[in-house]
Design a protein around this nucleic acid. Structure first.
Lengths: 120, 120
DNA sequence: CTCCATAGTTCATTTTTTGAAACTATTGCA
DNA sequence: TGCAATAGTTTCAAAAAATGAACTATGGAG
């Protein structure tokens, strides 16, 4: 479907990073193992359907593992695989970009350039 | 709309990277200045509407500049801004990941592993 | 005044993604 | 038996994104 130009075929990563929630979901998982309910709360207005869809896709892509813990209230933990952990440099590069250049232009107020102050 | 967890707010970059075509489009622009028609051919099954939509968004985000060259057949060149160039490390990280881990599981053919041959 | 080439725009339609609400499944305990 | 807690699934509707085809705009050459 895609005709890759020579320098750098990024296609295999498109499935993983594309979509409204994938980057945010992966960011959560970089902070460690998470349970379904935790993810649902962190990503708050996400619907359970969308969340399971994304998680299943990431499982298929071998980016996360799903572990079921039976018990009184059963629970499930999602964790990054090795393959998933290795995405970290991509996110690190994003974070650096956002720090230096993240202040979006969005809508320029025409009263002159008052850049957004740092958001952290 | 999004409640950022402390470590690394990547939200400002979501607009820029999200969507089916954005990564592919940016990749083209890392190879240098491109004209509308060139982009259209490189990204082949893209529709002109989608292409202009994406380019306008990237302009608003100050990732690309649009320069009109009047002349016999007029033409337009799209080029990355400084801000856009600085996205390069993100793509570099993606390329490295793809090289090492890119072979997608996709659908495991149970007849044994005949991996896709290199597409370069 | 028409034609060519480039770069779009417009509009209706299709495809894809997301969503909300309600329902299922598991298991121990009261 | 019935409830509580977790983690989903199902169904149908809504919203967003992408598409295709045809049309507009520009400006010089013939």
């Amino acid at each position: 479907m895609i005709s890759p130009g020579c320098p750098g075929a990024i296609e295999p990563i498109l499935t993983i990073l594309d979509g409204k929630w994938n980057l945010l979901l992966l960011r959560e998982l970089f902070n460690g193992t998470k349970r379904f309910g935790e993810l649902r709360r962190s990503l708050h207005p996400i619907s359970p359907k969308t969340l399971t869809d994304r998680l299943r896709m990431l499982e298929e892509q071998e980016i996360v593992t799903r572990t079921l813990y039976p018990g009184v209230p059963l629970h499930v933990e999602y964790e990054l695989t090795e393959r998933g952990q290795r995405l970290q440099p991509i996110f690190a590069a994003m974070w650096m970009w956002v720090q230096e250049y993240g202040a979006c232009p969005q809508k320029e107020t025409d009263d002159g350039g008052q850049d957004a102050e740092a958001v952290m």
